[in-house]
Amino acid sequence: MFDKWPNLLNPLLGKKLRMWKRLGMAIAACLLAISCAATPLQPLRISSVIWLGYEPLFLARDLGYYDDAPIQIIEDTDHVGRTKRFLNGDVELTTTTLDGLLDIATLQDEMRALLIMDFSDGADAMIAQPEIERISDLKGKTIGILPSLLGRLVLTRTLESAELTIDDVQIIDIDSHQQEEAFKAKEVDATTTYEPVASRLRAEGGNIIFDSSQMRGEIVDLLVGHKDVVVTHKKEIEILLAGWFKALDYIQTNPDDAIARISEHVQLTPEQVRTALEKLHYLSLEENIAVLNKTDQESLDGMRKLAQFLEDRELLKDSIDPTQLLDARSVETL
């Protein structure tokens, strides 16, 4: 009788073993999922100067959109410091203009634009002392320019519009945090600048004799990083960009509060901010995808035109096709 028990028990034991095996696999899968979900976010550092086109980043931070993520936005007072910090690897991302990206790309390989932030349509300018009313009056004068490719771009466009050349003026480098003081002290007769400094210089009686509305599509602001950062910081960049577009929506749906917050940050009056914002075009998510996916032919042509202009005037060290620096991977995840 007893010798029959093993035959009776084997099926039961087999069934129990299979049940425990399946349970073990389920537990392992759950533990793996928990482990993956609990993977901590990596620090993501972004260097940026204060410019109205970048303000949605700071607004998103102020509204708490990044409170649950290790995202650090570092405010640099000058262009040189911002670029140096990025090239040294002290930050993963930086804000810059298209010409700035082209300049950086000549120094480091595999740089990419991950976000098209805005087009300047008057927010960058050449502002002159009250007694200077025309660009032709700049001949023989001292002009302060930003120590960047952007400063030289605006200067060149300004002078060429009046058939002047760089040889017709004296040039000194003055970064954005020094411009207001130099202008008040009349150390310069005119200076290239941008918002919010432009509004402050206008309040001092400065005349706008040229602005970026006369060079549409050439001053494009970008969020830039190495191509590998899209993989190494995928989730963090997704949070950063989601906050950016959420801040753009907030400006539309809660303009009074948004402008009040921006005003405090850039140290302008709300009315000055409202006026300055009219000189910018922030790109939507859909517009970003179109440009970064290289389906917006008009924007691509404008980028190539700018690169050719810089190359022809020997403002750019190497010949670079800017459209090859566009990367849509991050915006496509939103």
Rank of each mutant, 00 (worst) to 15 (best):
K139F: 01
T142A: 11
F210R: 01
N207Y: 02
K186C: 10
G225P: 03
Q170E: 07
I219T: 04
E160F: 09
T191G: 05
S213K: 11
Q179D: 03
E133G: 10
Q170W: 07
S212V: 08
L223I: 07
Q179V: 09
Q214P: 02
S213R: 11
Y194H: 10
L155V: 02
E163N: 15
A203H: 01
Q178E: 14
Q179A: 10
V188Q: 05
S176W: 00
V229M: 11
D173T: 06
L153V: 00
S161D: 05
R134G: 12
G144K: 10
A203G: 07
L159P: 09
L155E: 06
D189G: 11
R152L: 04
R200I: 00
F183T: 05
T165M: 11
V220F: 14
K186P: 08
E187R: 15
T142F: 13
G144T: 02
V169I: 07
S148G: 11
K184Y: 02
D189N: 15
Y194M: 08
L153T: 05
D137C: 04
D221S: 15
A198Y: 01
T193K: 03
I209E: 06
S199Y: 04
R200T: 03
T142Q: 15
T193M: 02
S136D: 14
Q214I: 01
L159N: 02
I132L: 13
I143M: 12
T193R: 03
